[in-house]
């Protein structure tokens, strides 16, 4: 086993822990935080797995996944806050 195998193992264990938090909650924010963290680890897992199997082309997928993970979290947060993805009514403070 080389260093990539060790990293894959650590990432998988950590993803299981994150999954536990996303199931246990208790608030919706805990779940979104866990899912966001899970996404970051997925990006790392894709990158490391590409090296493990000797196909670093997987990095393109990791790049796309990193951006989608960010947009997904922002979308879920916006929806939780405003109940809508288009506008930002009933909000008198600056956002983000």
């Amino acid at each position: 086993m080389d260093q990539f195998g060790a990293a894959t193992l650590a990432l998988l264990v950590c993803m299981a822990m994150t999954l536990f938090r996303s199931i246990a909650g208790p608030t919706v924010f805990d779940r979104v935080l866990a899912v966001n963290s899970f996404g970051t680890k997925t990006v790392l897992l894709i990158a490391v797995y590409g090296f493990l199997t000797g196909r670093p082309d997987f990095l393109d997928l990791a790049l796309v996944y990193a951006l989608m993970n960010f947009i997904g979290t922002i979308a879920v947060m916006k929806f939780t806050r405003f109940g809508d993805l288009a506008g930002m009514e009933d909000d008198d403070e600056e956002t983000l």
Partner: peptide, 13 residues
């Protein structure tokens, strides 16, 4: 990308 987006996501949460 990770360094630029992760604080924004944490802050939004």
């Amino acid at each position: 990308f990770l360094a630029a987006t992760s604080p924004l996501a944490s802050h939004a949460l």
